[in-house]
Design a protein around this nucleic acid. Sequence first.
DNA 1: CTGAAAGCGCTTACAG
DNA 2: CTGAAAGCGCTTACAG
Lengths: 368, 368
Amino acid sequence: MGGRDATKPVTARAAKPTIVQVAAAAGVSPTTVSHALNGKGRVDEGTRAHVERVAASLGYSANRYARGLRSGRFAAHALLLPVALGRGGSGALTLDYYMRLASGVAAELFAHRQLLVLVPPVPDAGAVASIPVDGAIVVEPTEGDEQLAALREAGLPTVTTDRDPDHPDDPWCVTSDLGRGTTALLDHLAGEGATRVALVLPDARREWPRAVESAYDEWCDRRGSAPVVERVALAARAHAVHAATCALVDAKPAVHAILVGAERFVPAVMDALADRGVRVPHDLLVAACVDGNHARGAAPPLTAFDLRPELQARAAVELLLARVSGAAPTGPTVVRGALHVRASTTRSHARVRSSRAASAERGTRQSH
Amino acid sequence: MGGRDATKPVTARAAKPTIVQVAAAAGVSPTTVSHALNGKGRVDEGTRAHVERVAASLGYSANRYARGLRSGRFAAHALLLPVALGRGGSGALTLDYYMRLASGVAAELFAHRQLLVLVPPVPDAGAVASIPVDGAIVVEPTEGDEQLAALREAGLPTVTTDRDPDHPDDPWCVTSDLGRGTTALLDHLAGEGATRVALVLPDARREWPRAVESAYDEWCDRRGSAPVVERVALAARAHAVHAATCALVDAKPAVHAILVGAERFVPAVMDALADRGVRVPHDLLVAACVDGNHARGAAPPLTAFDLRPELQARAAVELLLARVSGAAPTGPTVVRGALHVRASTTRSHARVRSSRAASAERGTRQSH
DNA sequence: CTGAAAGCGCTTACAG
DNA sequence: CTGAAAGCGCTTACAG
């Protein structure tokens, strides 16, 4: 049984056992070990159990690269986050939304024994296609997205989160119901007495700002009120958002509420309102289309629509694995978001206080 | 020249050329292609240039797994973020700090033609060691960190970000000068008139809260003032932080400033102060030990110490690649953070206004 | 300076 | 049900 092995020099580093060593220890062939461990072919149940026990006792796990080389599968997938917005690391990547999404994708893939390769923004578009992965998730592609195009051309199975503006009918995507969320937000604001609602709209060639805009337009249309929109580049500096907010404060006739289209605008919007002496929610209501750290941490906390990135992550992985294994498309997966009403749109101070107290109580009870 | 190749069936998917095809097209052997492309061995300069041209024209890139299998290197590294703090995705991973760090590591590795595998929190500690990577970066290990122990036992080259509490002398780590930052923060607060400064301290078995605490203790000692500390679990719910803050507001004698040890505490602290009618900075100064979205987006924005995760990422990758290639340890890399003074500790309103206006002006000028 | 050959650790037809 | 053999695409001693 492999006498040669005995003369092999012991490597310095904790020698990872190979399939040959497991086979020798179990008294079977490497082929049988492979079959037993992968559930392929026909293996006697007793043999399989025995092999599994031996493999476990040796701490064996297949070399992923050898497996990938032979099988053509890498058991790894790439995640491409949006190109950095703005400069100096203070762009979109500072949003916790992406962290929750990336973390969710990593966890979901890991549960399927797959790995997540995090691809940094804007490396060479061509190089992206040569990364050894079985598929890729592209987050919020833009119009004319070069990386996405490179992946498509290379024939790599790809799923997008948020629709691809260039292929709006691509069934391999996960979207949110941000349009519905926007409408719900507007209805909620109207319910709180704000009939004239202004919108600070990110000017990005992505699908989600368009969803926000058309929902807003339709809503205004339905109510017969004139849209009041300030457009700001998604990567804009704070002062631009600040200026846009001041413009809305000065609007005639006065607006009752501001809907903030991008979460990264929130601090600058609140800053501008504070500078102008506008009290929220007393003088003006404020809500955000996308929930996140900024919205939750604002003073007062902002009512916002939670896209639930964890669910999007799960849906994207599911879709991607299906596509990689050659399944037929079943259409886009729509992840339903959730509206979180907070103090920024709640006029009655009493209500805010009591909901706060209630949640504090809940917390106390749960932690005991 | 490989007549057999001509009879090979054409694969459906965009056929990635292999080294054999490049060799055939260039009229040389695969060995020479390998040498030419990897800068190994001796190859005639003309031959090398020719091979490079042919490879580029064919869109060739080496199959990473075949290379890894043969060379024993995977050209990939794992990043292990801290275990999720708290439940339901609202833990530490919602902090942009980790996103900036992860993104920075990915970019830096990519620049070295290496890949980043993002390992989700708390998968099986044993399984972590069998991921096909050349090394790992463990972020903020805890005392008795199981994943780190598993990686060490498996002999995988590892670098930690923040010291490993179990191996404080391990030279393979990147740390910040958070102790100095804490002192600088305290000195700044004292300079603004706050001589009695309370601390909300995260109670985590990690190195950085200890750095904050000992810097704080020393500072109090030096000034002969009694420490006022509220300890809160790093994963604590908002109501616990809220309660701790209220306790500090009620402290006798009254404190002049609150130093917030963990950035994730910021919203709850500010919330509590607002609830108690405490105005910042008028009645009380507030600063955060770690900068981030919460600190920047608070109302008013909080003075904080920026750990500069991008620089930490770069340092960690450098250290890791050195360790993987067998270099001798050169000691921990200390990344200097930067103190950002903001409105939360600036009493003179005029100063705040003017600095705001100045930055807005700067922004305007730059964007033209 | 160049190349033929071996082999990394697996999985996969193919025999038996 | 089990195994011997081929081969995935590369790199690495080794010859020349």
